[in-house]
């Protein structure tokens, strides 16, 4: 079963929604920013107050990972990303409603973003991306270990946040809505070749800085201002196939201060398979500029 493909309304009825967000008291643990800096994570690890999630391939994890981290390869999550399965994953990783979660990868934050988005979607509030990749962490000589970590099973509640989700039908309705902006996160030449009509291109490569998976908020905010994007606009991001690059864009836009951001996790791959219209640009042979 793959819930994300179903119409939103039906899905809502399928799942027992615990409206914990409304009822719950403020959590006792501090909340995380969208991006967690190195020092904060190290402190949290020392105090044993965080669940670190490594989303690289399993064999990479076994070769070495950030201290206390658990392994959740992105492929495992994507193989079955309906809400029930995601909840099962959270439970198995020992992540309960109040657990602070910091996620990292070795793919400039894109894989981590996709996992973090899924956690958010299912209703986990305190989730952040680590500001650096594993490779950088290692290069800085910070704490790593090789032992596989396992934590006791817990029970996470379900509180699906449809406000951060979009499907093809939603995109279709947004295409002609001036207040809704569709963002394609793929690289420029892929965008020029074909894209969802009326979408704008913000390649994921724009979002990172030399030392961090995301630029600082003021810079990202300026980029959006340049693009004429208002903080009050609703933005829907998509990319090539599974929502990784656009997942990173999701967090970048959030970081820039835009509150209403949605991810189309099935992205352009699904859009094309559904035979939806696309805009192609064939008047220039831009691929021949590439020096590859």
């Amino acid at each position: 079963m793959c819930c994300l493909n179903k119409p939103i309304n039906r899905k809502k009825n399928d799942i027992k929604v615990v409206n914990k967000r409304v009822k719950a008291k403020p959590p006792s643990t501090p909340s995380l920013n969208l991006v967690c800096d190195i020092d904060t994570l190290r402190t949290l690890i020392k105090k044993n107050k965080v669940r670190v999630v490594d989303v690289r391939k399993r064999d990479e994890y076994l070769k070495g990972h950030i201290k206390t981290a658990v392994s959740l390869p992105l492929a495992e999550l994507l193989s079955n990303d309906d809400p029930e399965s995601i909840i099962k994953i959270l439970n198995n990783l020992g992540i309960s409603d109040d657990t602070l979660v910091v996620i990292y990868d070795d793919t400039f934050g894109a894989l981590a973003s996709r996992v973090a988005w899924s956690f958010k979607f299912i209703g986990h509030r305190n989730v952040a991306l680590l500001e650096v990749t594993y490779d950088n962490w290692k290069k800085l000589g910070l704490e790593i270990e090789r032992k596989s970590n396992k934590y006791s099973k817990v029970s996470h509640s379900v509180d699906i946040d449809y406000s951060i989700f979009a499907d093809a039908e939603y995109i279709e309705n947004a295409q002609n809505d001036k207040n809704k902006i569709i963002i394609d996160s793929r690289e420029r030449l892929n965008f020029l070749t074909e894209h969802i009509p009326n979408s704008k291109n913000i390649p994921y490569t724009m979002l990172r800085s030399e030392n961090s998976i995301l630029r600082n908020p003021s810079e990202l905010k300026r980029f959006m201002e340049n693009r004429g994007i208002d903080l009050n606009n609703e933005i829907i991001t998509y990319c090539g196939s599974v929502g990784t690059l656009s997942g990173l864009a999701f967090f970048a836009l959030k970081t820039a201060g835009i509150s209403n951001v949605k991810l189309y996790p099935k992205s352009f791959k699904e859009w094309k398979s559904l035979g939806k219209p696309k805009t192609e640009f064939k008047d220039a042979t831009y691929w021949d500029l590439s020096a590859e």
Binding site: E187, R188, P203, M206, Y286, L289, S290, A291, E292
Partner: peptide, 13 residues
């Protein structure tokens, strides 16, 4: 190099 990666097509001419 980094400006091309961020805002152009990842190569320069």
């Amino acid at each position: 190099a980094s400006l091309s990666e961020s805002f152009s097509i990842g190569s320069a001419h």
